[in-house]
Amino acid sequence: MLIHFIVAGGLLFHRMAAAKISRMQFDSGLLKVVTDEPELIADIQSRMEDNFERIVHGLQVGVASGILARELTPLGPSFRALGMVLPKEIRDLGGHGGEIVAAAKRLGHWFSDDPLETVATRLRVEF
């Protein structure tokens, strides 16, 4: 769902949060991030709001490049990955870009495990 991307953007556009999440295990879960390092979600609400335009532009690029497909659902726009493997140029990003890709994979996995209400409660965000 679009809202998942907005929430993820609040974490991915924060260098410390992206770095921490990228190093975590897939089975760790979102709750572990919040309990281990609660400062990573401090001010996440404003980071989501401040980065909204970048997040939407990123989704547009993903759809235009064929990495994502946009689908309309009763709850609003949704996006799904086309294919299981990202292009090599994205997979092989180093530095902060690579951390963002790794963190995004983990967030996608974690978000699929919990209802949106649970994610919002754990991160202390409102829509």
Rank of each mutant, 00 (worst) to 15 (best):
K20H: 13
I44G: 07
L40E: 09
Q45H: 04
E71H: 12
F127L: 12
I6Q: 06
F79P: 08
P87R: 06
F111I: 08
S22I: 02
A19E: 15
F26E: 10
N51G: 10
N51Y: 05
L12A: 03
V34H: 01
T121K: 15
E39C: 06
H57N: 10
N51S: 11
H57D: 13
L93D: 02
E117H: 11
G9Y: 04
G9S: 09
D114H: 14
D92E: 13
R15S: 09
H4V: 00
I44E: 02
A17V: 09
H96F: 14
T118D: 12
I41K: 13
S46D: 15
I41W: 00
A64T: 05
S65F: 08
P77I: 02
L82T: 14
L31C: 04
G94R: 08
V63L: 11
R122Y: 10
D113I: 09
L93W: 08
E89C: 01
L12Y: 02
V56Y: 04
L116P: 04
A19F: 03
L12P: 06
R124T: 03
K32T: 15
F111N: 01
E37Y: 08
R122A: 06
V34I: 13
L86H: 08
Q45F: 05
K32M: 09
F13I: 02
G29P: 06
D114R: 11
V119G: 04
A81C: 09
G83K: 04
I41H: 00
E71R: 13
I3R: 14
L12G: 03
I90F: 09
V61T: 11
I44D: 07
Q45T: 10
R122K: 11
E49F: 09
P74T: 12
I55P: 00
L31Q: 14
S78G: 12
M1E: 07
L86C: 00
V7I: 15
E53T: 14
H4G: 07
M1V: 07
A120R: 09
E71F: 05
A19G: 12
L30E: 01
P115F: 10
V61E: 15
T121N: 12
L11I: 04
L72Q: 14
S22R: 08
L82Q: 14
V33L: 15
F13E: 07
H4Y: 11
L59G: 04
G10W: 01
G62D: 06
A102E: 13
H96Q: 10
L30I: 15
A19M: 10
L31R: 12
G97I: 05
V61K: 13
L31K: 15
A103Q: 07
G66V: 07
T73R: 13
A102W: 01
